[in-house]
């Protein structure tokens, strides 16, 4: 439905091609009006955004008769799959101003390149933190085990994503979460099934998690650090994010150019804008995520924000378990998560 709509929009928009368009498949906030409007006016490129709820949405949307999108922004665990599927094309890094300003360790991530050729432009990063309602806890939770606390029955939520396996595995003491054996996945599955009676709802989108907290249905969950908590703060609901003692996953989102895009010119204008102060502070202000380009970030952030988003401390990302492509093991993880939900 959404696809036909976008296709229709693309059709009706084509006579105005002289002006240019760019169709992006991305996360909520990454094409927010607060900074996209300025880009549209300056570049003459109309931005049409479609949003995903999970990294698992990119491949099906592009495989099921793609051709509609010019740019996508998958996370570091999904970028390799996009390259393997032949859905994206090599980046012309020379056409991207500020490419050299991106944190070196991000540019060099193996998931973003193939045979030394770059396919992904790092954009933003952060942690999959945990979060709780301040008014419910006298002792602040510090561990993943708090999401297994029977006292919180019916008040717990977890992201409806294969990352639930990562969470349960860490609770089981299996810290090599991206290389779990079949037995360890089985143990994580059992742990998640044990948790089910406590779960109110598995959240699927950022908006849904916010609604669950707002409606008083949920008091503790995992979250995209910086994002839902600020949406809740705006609603007057006080929540606190925390990195549990078992550690948290880290993510990095990168822009990729869809193979044979007809809108390459606007696509590169868009990439340049996203890596500049406008795009880097745009996403930092809207989503509360950290920026991949510290030079641009320094230019537009207050010193407080710069420090709060760990921009002067990229080693912080090393303390997080950065998402990795699961490759052949992908199926084992998703299958286990589906089995949990089937119970």
């Amino acid at each position: 439905m959404k696809k036909t709509l976008t296709a229709l929009l693309a059709l009706t928009a084509s006579p105005a091609l002289a002006e240019g368009t760019v169709n992006v498949l991305t996360w909520e906030g990454y094409a927010d009006a607060s900074f996209i409007t300025q880009f549209e006016e300056e570049s003459g490129c109309k931005v049409t955004a479609t949003y995903v709820g999970s990294n698992d949405d990119f491949a099906p949307k592009l495989l099921g008769g793609g051709g509609v999108y010019d740019l996508i922004a998958p996370s570091i665990d999904t970028t390799a799959l996009m390259i393997d599927l032949g859905l994206v094309e090599p980046l012309d890094t020379a056409a991207i101003t500020g490419w050299g300003d991106i944190y070196q360790k991000f540019r060099d991530l193996p998931g973003l390149q193939r045979d030394g050729v770059h396919y992904g432009m790092p954009y933003s990063w952060g942690a999959i933190a945990f979060m709780y309602r301040n008014d419910v806890f006298t002792t602040p939770p510090t561990s993943i085990a708090d999401l297994w606390n029977p006292d919180l029955a019916g008040k717990v939520s977890l992201w409806d994503d294969k990352s639930a396996i990562y969470v349960a595995a860490r609770l089981n003491g299996d810290s090599d979460i991206y290389n779990l054996t079949d037995e360890q996945i089985e143990a994580a599955k059992a742990k998640l099934i044990e948790q089910k009676p406590l779960v109110r709802k598995y959240w699927a989108t950022a908006g849904e998690l916010v609604d669950l907290y707002k409606a008083g249905e949920v008091v503790i969950s995992n979250t995209w650090a910086g994002y839902q908590s600020s949406l809740l703060a705006a609603e007057g609901i006080e929540v606190t994010e925390f990195i549990p003692t078992e550690g948290a996953e880290g993510w990095l989102d990168a822009w990729m150019v869809v193979k044979d895009t007809p809108n390459r010119e606007c696509a590169y204008k868009f990439l340049n804008m996203q890596l500049s102060a406008l795009g880097q502070c745009g996403v930092a202000n809207v989503n509360g995520y950290s920026a991949a380009n510290p030079v641009a970030a320094k230019a537009c952030m207050s010193p407080e924000q710069f420090t709060a988003l760990h921009q002067d401390d990229p080693d912080y990302l090393d303390s997080l378990m950065i998402w990795t492509a699961l490759g052949e093991r992908f199926e084992a993880y998703t299958n286990a998560w589906n089995a949990v939900k089937a119970q």
């Binding site: 698992d56 949405d57 099906p60 089910k196 109110r200 598995y202 998703t334 299958n335 089937a342 119970q343």
Partner: peptide, 25 residues
């Protein structure tokens, strides 16, 4: 199941959706 179902609310159409979607199977 997506809107009002709980953790024990997975129905067959949701499973088909996830096989065509996230599981890529």
């Amino acid at each position: 199941p997506f809107l009002v179902g709980g953790p024990d609310g997975n129905l067959i159409a949701s499973v088909i959706q996830s096989q065509f979607g996230s599981a890529l199977n």
